[in-house]
Nucleic acid binder design. Structure first.
Lengths: 339, 339
DNA sequence: CCGATCGATTGAAACGCTTCATAACGATCC
DNA sequence: GGATCGTTATGAAGCGTTTCAATCGATCGG
């Protein structure tokens, strides 16, 4: 049914070798012959058979695959975007799959990618994934770089973000504005990046009293009762700043303040994390921390391609990216009453 | 370097045919032999060569590809998610690529997908794409279904959303609440879905005066001067409701109201579109229109697989999905002063 | 005018797999 | 005991491509 190189050869009156040459080494073929072959291709609607090609070349495809834990996680949008740009520059294609935080799916996807002989894999592992399978794959010759926290991940290239620095930047900003009582609203500290940010914060405000507010179980629109309670305290004990583990929580913190008649940033400063698009559009524009997602994607592709190029002489690298505090209205610097 | 089926055969002391059988037709092989072969595979770290397999089977892969116009467009997150679920159910893999609104990239991606002999393609075309290339691809035997507006796209299966109905639902909601002056804030009406929503709105509020506010050039945090001007009018001429073409604009409209001391929904009702996560967390929770993205993805995969199964007898189908008004605080029903 | 040289083209081998017709081998039956 | 059968294993053919050694003409220097 489908036309192959042979049909083209017959129609053009040349051998299959020649047809292949016009595809891969046009300089070896007379322009006229080449044209005749191309005409034949058009006429037949010839489409190269990539699997066959790959087989003959006993090689890798130009496909880079990226596995992320959840396709609906907006954090990865720009990571993918950056990776895509870098891949394009290198003449490779990028495709994305999602493990949905399921270790088994992750393994299966890695397996089919290896079977497809992809050029390399960018992996942001499902949370508590054991990396044994990944190591094996790598040993068998598929380059792989890790995206996300690098701890305990020797033997791989990896790109991660300095979460602690993000917390520290927020802390320094708040300390400079004279805050002495700050609340940290986040999901359980057991989650790696949530804790790192917290510790960065604490580190940077040694003279302040920091209260961790666990919002486990929170979901958008659900309110923040634990935080509300804190804000209900008399002014002298009430936190003067709230640092939230992400922007959505921060937006809701804003609402809690408004509901209590507390002005932001007058009475309470609010800081988010992630710099999502809506942070600029909120009633009080949100101070937040921008993450270098796009760069994360870009660098990970670069590491991957380098690993591929280096071959046996390769030495793994870990890249640590810096987040960036973005000061906006919700924490605007101002004179504070003594607190 | 890499081990093949032959190496496995040699090590297990069987023929290549047998090895292949344990992979594809285990029932034809004695359990003991099968075990021996599997042990050999493990020992050698054998990984199936998918391209070779595909070639031998002269067939399609189990890979479904989806091309979206922009990887950073949050709208598609749940579309991809739904598609992924459906694909998984059907035993296929889904991979995503993005054309970045570039017709040329889209074409190139379609081409490499065809060369890879994917099982089918879900395409959300770059805006003003001509579909000729796509038609050719389809004629050559790659099933393809379209995601997005169906107009002028005969000859394909497609899944789209009834944008007009979304506008109508908002209109009916506002009309029922007694609004007589409503503003529509959106990017140029030339954009298909923006216009459709507008027309739905107008259709549903025949007795009201509707003002279209063009926010072309707007970006998050930029403010909405055109809308602000409207809101600055004396109460008797000021719109009592603002319908925004997306939630981000609506959030900003909320801020404009607050800045002018207008209460929402008391003085002005605000309605958004898309039902993004933050709509529940805003100071005034946002009335908006939820889009059936996840279903969109699911249905498109179903159509694709059906087309693949039907073969020549296939008749194209168009599915039109209904969006769903979600009423929240920013337009809460209430007694209105005569307006 | 002949051998050498060069450029264009050819055809076959190889890539790793699946499958199919065939063989090998017991067990079963008359 | 020989024919027949069923089960299991075999090896060669074929999938569509690329590449490489070989071929074929034509051109060139002497």
């Amino acid at each position: 049914m489908r036309k192959g190189i042979k049909d083209v050869a017959r129609l053009a009156g040349v051998s299959v070798g020649t047809v292949s040459h016009v595809l891969n080494h046009p300089e070896l073929v007379t322009p006229e012959t080449a044209q005749r072959v191309r005409d034949a291709m058009d006429e037949l609607g010839y489409v190269r058979n990539e699997p066959a090609r790959q087989l003959a070349l006993r090689g890798r495809s130009e496909l880079i695959a990226m596995i992320i834990p959840a396709i609906t996680d907006v954090f990865f949008l720009d990571v993918v975007d950056g990776a895509q740009q870098a891949a394009l520059l290198a003449g490779a294609e990028l495709m994305v799959a999602s493990s949905e935080h399921d270790l088994e799916r992750e393994q299966r996807q890695l397996q089919t990618l290896e079977q497809r002989r992809v050029r390399g894999v960018l992996l942001s592992p499902a949370v508590d994934a054991s990396l044994d399978g990944v190591r094996a794959l790598q040993r068998r010759g598929t380059p792989l770089t890790l995206i996300g926290p690098a701890f305990g991940r020797r033997g791989f290239c990896s790109v991660s973000i300095d979460e602690r620095s993000g917390g520290r930047q927020v802390g320094e900003h708040l300390a400079a504005a004279g805050h002495r009582r700050v609340a940290y609203a986040g999901t359980p500290l057991a989650v790696h990046h949530v804790r790192e940010r917290f510790e960065g914060l604490v580190e940077a405000v040694p003279e302040a009293q920091v209260t961790a507010v666990d919002v486990a179980g929170w979901q958008p629109g659900g309110g923040l009762p634990a935080l509300a309670e804190l804000l209900a305290a008399p002014a002298a004990r009430r936190p003067t700043a709230v640092f939230c583990a992400n922007d959505l929580i921060a937006l809701e913190a804003l609402a809690e303040c408004a509901a209590r008649g507390l002005s932001v940033p007058g009475d309470v400063a609010v800081v988010g994390y992630d710099d999502m698009p809506f942070t600029r559009s909120a009633a009080v524009s949100l101070t937040t921390v921008a993450q270098p997602q796009e760069e994360m994607g870009r660098r990970s592709v670069e590491l991957l391609l380098r690993e591929d190029a280096d071959g046996a002489t390769h030495r793994h690298r870990s890249v640590l990216l810096q987040p960036q505090l973005v000061v906006r209205g919700s924490s605007a610097a101002q004179r504070r009453r003594a607190g």
